[in-house]
Design a protein around this nucleic acid. Structure first.
Lengths: 341, 341
DNA sequence: ATGAAAGCGCTAACAC
DNA sequence: GTGTTAGCGCTTTCAT
C-alpha cells in the first residue's frame, strides 16, 4: 500500500512523471512544452498531477528556461487609490492575456533608494517584463536592463526616449476643465498651482493656460505644502469676497474636498456663489459628492500598457509614448457664472 | 583589453567570483552566507559585484536553498483603499524586518477560482510565508500548505483554527459607535444592515445590538443590493420625517456618503435634524467631510501580522487569533439628539 | 511521440 | 577562511 501523499509543495515533476508512467521530459512537455504530446499521455499526466496536488516550481522552471513569462509591476504607493486602481486593472488585463504578474512596492513612499530595492526584487525574480508605475525611479536606473527586459512606464506623463510609455494626457485633461469653466460663462477664476507636486503643478499650469487662452482672467494661488490646505483656501475665499472670481479650479479632487469645509464655513454656496472643479475622478465614492472633475483614464492606460507589453514580448520595437485623454465629469460643483457682487 | 561588460542581468555570481579572484562559494558566503569571510575578501567581492552590476538571481538562490525568505501577499482587491493601505503597511513592516515581499491579486474581484490562481502564483514562487488578505479563499484551500509555509490571514474577522489570524474587531468597533450614539442622547435610530455583504451585515447587526443594549430603539433597514443606494436612504428619510428616529448608522463610510445627497435633497440638516455615523475611516480625504465613524486599525493589523509571521518563521507555534480594536472618530455628523417633531 | 542527459545559477555540506 | 562538489526542479537539445 502507498504511503500517504507528501505535502503538495514537495511534489516534484519527477514524482508526477513516475505516477503517470512517463519520463520527466514528457511531463514537462505536457505542462508548457512546445512539442506535441499524445492525447492520452497528456491526460495521464494531468491526472497524476491532480492526484498528487502538484504545484509547479516557478523557480526551477524559469531557471531552466533562462527567464520567465511572469511580468512584474513596480507600483509607487498602493495606498493611493489611483495606483490601487491601476494595479487592479493591470492585473485584470495581464490575466486576460494569459500572463502572470507579481507586484512589488517600495517600503516607503519617498526615496529613490527604496524604489531601487523594489526594482531589484523584480529583477532578481528575472521577470519577463516590467511595468513601472512610479515617477521616482529615473530612466537612468532602468537603462541598464532595457535590452534584457521590456519596460513599460505607465501613468506618469514623462519618459525616456528608449522606454515605452503609456501616460495620462494631463495637459489635455486640464484643458477639458478649462473649457468647461469658460463655457459656463466664468470670466475670472482662481487656479491652485501647488509648488511641490510635479504632477499637480503641471495640471494647475495647464488649467491656467487653458483659461487664459479663452479670455478668462486667472488668479493663480500657489498652495503651500500639502499638509496645510487652509492657506490657499482662505485666499480663494478672500478672492470671492472681493468679487474677483466666480470659480476656483483645483489640481486634485482631494484639494477640492479640503476646500469644501472652508467654503461652507464662509457661507459660500456651491455653485451658486462659487463654482469649483477638481481633478482625478478616482476616489471611490467621490462621484456622490457631485464633483465636476476630469476622470483620468486609468483603465485605458492599463489596457494599452499590457498591449504594448505583449507586443514587446513578441518582438522589440521602437519605443513609443502614448498620451491618453481623460473624460470630463459634469458634476454639481460647476454652475453658470453668477453676477458678481 | 576587456570586452564591454555584458548586461547586468547576465552577470552570474561565478563571474563576480572570477572578477574578485575568489571561488563561487566564497562569493556566495559574502552575500548571504552564515560562515564568516575575511574582511578584505568581502570588500573585493562587493567591489566586483558593483563593477559588474550584478543582480543576484533569486530563482537560482531559492532553488538551491530549497526555499526563500521572500514573503507573499495575496490581496483581494487592490483598488479598494482599505486593501491598498493594508498592502502599503504590510510592505513597510516587512521591509522594516529586513524581509522581502511580493504581492499578487486575483484577476477579478469575485470568484474563488481567480483567487486560487493567485494563490498558486505565490506557491509557485515557493514563498517563505504568506499573508492572505481576502475572505474569498476558504481555509480549506489553504490547509494543504500549512505545514510547509506559514500563513497569516489578515483583516477578515473569521478564521480557521489551524491558521493564524490578525483581524479587525468589528463587533467592538460597532459597539464604539453604538455607545457614542447612545451617549449623544439618541433614543431611536435607524441601522443599515445589508444582506449581501458579510462584513457589512455583521457590522450592522453588531451596531443594532449595541444600541438595543443601551435602551435605544432600533429601526433596521435592510439595504438592498449595493448599486441602488436610493432605497434604504429613502426609508431613512421617511423614518426621520415620521419622527421615528434622530440618527442613522451606516456599516461603511461609502454608504454614509451615498446618503448625503438624499439628506440634502430632503432638506435634512446634519446633524441638527439627523445624526449620521459611518464605518471604516479609510477613504483618503474622507476625514475632511467630518464623518463620525470608526477607523479600522489597518496599521496595527499590518504590524501584528508581520510580527506573527516573523515568529512563525523562527518556530512554528500554535495558531492564534487576534482581534484589533479600532478608534472612534468624532466628526461633525453626530450631534446631540434633537427633540422630535 | 518520447526518453536520456546536460545544464540553468546558486547553496551547502564537506574537505583542506 | 576558503575551495570543491553535489545537487535544487526544471527545460531542452539530441537521439531514438
Amino acid at each position: 500500500m502507498d504511503n500517504e501523499a507528501p505535502s503538495p509543495l514537495k511534489v516534484t515533476m519527477a514524482a508526477v512523471a513516475v505516477e503517470a508512467g512517463v519520463s520527466r521530459a514528457t511531463a514537462s512537455r505536457v505542462f508548457y512544452g512546445s512539442t506535441p504530446v499524445a492525447e492520452h499521455t497528456r491526460q495521464a499526466v494531468y491526472a497524476a498531477a491532480e492526484r498528487l496536488g502538484y504545484v509547479p516550481n516557478t523557480m526551477a522552471r524559469s531557471l531552466a528556461a533562462r527567464g520567465s513569462d511572469i511580468l512584474g509591476l513596480l507600483v509607487r504607493a498602493p495606498d493611493n487609490p489611483a495606483y490601487g486602481l491601476l494595479f487592479s486593472e493591470l492585473q485584470a488585463n495581464v490575466s486576460g492575456a494569459g500572463l502572470q504578474m507579481v507586484t512589488v512596492a517600495p517600503s516607503r513612499n519617498e526615496g529613490a533608494h527604496f524604489e531601487r530595492q523594489a526594482l531589484n526584487r523584480l529583477l532578481g525574480l528575472r521577470v519577463g517584463g516590467m511595468f513601472v508605475a512610479t515617477g521616482v525611479i529615473s530612466a537612468g536606473m532602468l537603462e541598464p536592463f532595457l535590452d534584457l527586459v521590456p519596460v513599460v512606464v505607465v501613468g506618469r506623463p514623462e519618459s525616456h526616449p528608449d522606454i515605452h510609455g503609456v501616460s495620462y494626457d494631463e495637459d489635455h485633461n486640464a484643458d477639458l476643465l478649462a473649457h468647461a469653466v469658460a463655457a459656463a460663462g466664468h470670466r475670472s477664476a482662481a487656479v491652485v498651482v501647488p509648488e511641490h507636486s510635479v504632477s499637480e503643478h503641471r495640471r494647475g499650469a495647464a488649467m491656467a493656460r487653458g483659461l487664459t487662452e479663452r479670455g478668462v482672467r486667472v488668479h493663480q494661488v500657489s498652495s503651500p505644502t500639502f499638509g496645510s490646505q487652509g492657506e490657499g483656501g482662505r485666499e480663494i475665499v478672500a478672492l470671492r469676497r472681493a468679487g474677483l472670481i466666480t470659480a476656483a479650479m483645483f489640481p486634485s479632487d482631494f484639494r477640492l474636498l479640503a476646500f469644501l469645509p472652508l467654503a461652507q464655513e464662509a457661507g459660500l454656496r456651491v455653485p451658486e456663489d462659487l463654482s469649483l472643479t477638481g481633478f482625478d475622478g478616482i476616489l471611490p465614492g467621490i462621484d456622490l459628492l457631485g464633483f465636476t472633475t476630469v476622470r483620468i483614464p486609468v483603465e485605458d492606460a492599463a489596457r494599452r500598457a499590457v498591449e504594448v507589453m505583449r507586443a514587446q514580448l513578441e518582438e522589440r520595437t521602437r519605443p513609443r509614448h502614448e498620451l491618453l485623454p481623460g473624460t470630463l465629469i459634469r458634476g454639481r460643483t460647476l454652475g453658470p457664472a453668477p453676477t458678481l457682487r
